[in-house]
Nucleic acid binder design. Structure first.
Lengths: 215, 215
DNA sequence: AATTTCACCGATAGTACTATCGGTGAAAAA
DNA sequence: TTTTTCACCGATAGTACTATCGGTGAAATT
């Protein structure tokens, strides 16, 4: 079947990737409680004991999953920002600021679900990762809003900006969940609603700057 | 110490309540993975085996927790609606539609967290409960919006209404989490932001009705 | 007063998982 | 070719939890 006889290190690496892939699938389907060395090893086609050739222990696997998920997520966010900068005209660019993250989420729904779940689970070794990721995304979005002209003079201004960023994230996530669950099949309708909500917080912009972001 | 010598059934009921109280505490602090018969029984001050005097098995406890959480939640929602109807003037009533659910959530943060967590956890026996609860709340909110005058003629209208309701819930939850975590200490600031977002979706109201909800 | 009920106890069988250990054969190095 | 390395294997010790069982004493019933 395979034309290439794999070298030992290549074979090991392949097995490790199979383990990680299997782990993500189990995590998504059964949750963290279902993620055992027995199941992961079996799904990857090796003996349970061989799991420990690739990972020090169960925690070590979780750490690897967190690292990889974080890496994918950061790459997706970079890509989203890049694409948003390249959007043709202003109104389409505004829609893109919602459409692009939505598409990114829907591209890796399992990763998204895992993060969403770990976010509020104190027993999850991935909670730290999820909390940091959402905090980073929030700060990131707050900076974008500040660049749009939202006031940041007082402590209260900055807090409000963080709340708005937090709100946008929550809205985006909720709509993505609805789309993934099949309740909102049309992404453009979802973007319409997000744009509608955005008209609300854009009113917090000083009047002079408002034209740049809204309408 | 205690003046009353308890009857047998009273004592049993007290023990059952202690078990449920302990279970909620453990669920909140350690997540579902930490909820074992050993820990619950110990925390309630009885032997592990005596757990089965009160519950058929572990599932049965989870079911009882779900029932009780659902009951508390429905009571809170009824109370919130009652208070919202009694609000003095229109602008304050509009703020109340956000403030009251927020206060309800902050009144039982552990219940809220547990629900939030179970919502996306396929391994949780509470997932069904969480999904149904959020769907019920969404439908409920959508009905309120329809009563405000949002169009519901087409399928698309109704879908949009559901998205808006979903969005409002997500915003409220996100703000409540921020408040509970200490990031947004002032609830009035939180309400300000929710009102700002609401100005956005209120634009979807037909112009004639808009004055009733906004400003 | 005699009897029954039952909430609780300690002990334990059964289950599922984690992690370690010595052995094996093929790839890699000598 | 000989030796070494190492990814993988089966077996198994150790751990944590679930659920059952017979026994006990005090409350409830007769």
């Amino acid at each position: 079947m395979t034309g290439t006889p794999l070298s030992r290190s290549e074979a090991k690496d392949l097995t490790r990737r199979r383990l990680i892939r299997a782990a993500f699938a189990i995590l998504d389907e059964e949750g963290e409680a279902g993620l055992t060395t027995v199941k992961v090893a079996k799904a990857a086609g090796i003996a349970q004991s061989s799991f420990y050739v690739h990972f020090k222990d169960r925690q070590d696997l979780l750490r690897a999953l967190g690292d990889q998920a974080g890496e994918r997520l950061r790459a997706t966010m970079r890509e989203a920002r890049r694409r948003a900068r390249e959007a043709p005209d202003d109104s389409e660019r505004h829609r893109d600021t919602f459409r692009i993250p939505l598409e990114a989420i829907c591209g890796h729904p399992e990763l998204f679900r895992i993060g969403l779940r770990a976010r509020h689970d104190p027993s999850s070794p991935l909670q730290g990762f999820a909390v940091e990721t959402s905090a980073a995304y929030r700060a990131h979005l707050a900076a974008d809003l500040a660049a749009m002209g939202f006031p940041t003079g007082t402590e209260r201004d900055r807090r409000r900006l963080e709340m708005v960023a937090d709100g946008i994230t929550a809205l985006t996530n909720a709509m993505a969940v609805g789309h993934i669950e099949g309740r909102y099949p049309d992404l453009e309708e979802v973007v319409d609603v997000l744009v509608a909500f955005s008209k609300g917080y854009l009113r917090l912009l000083p009047p002079a700057r408002r034209a740049a972001g809204a309408e």
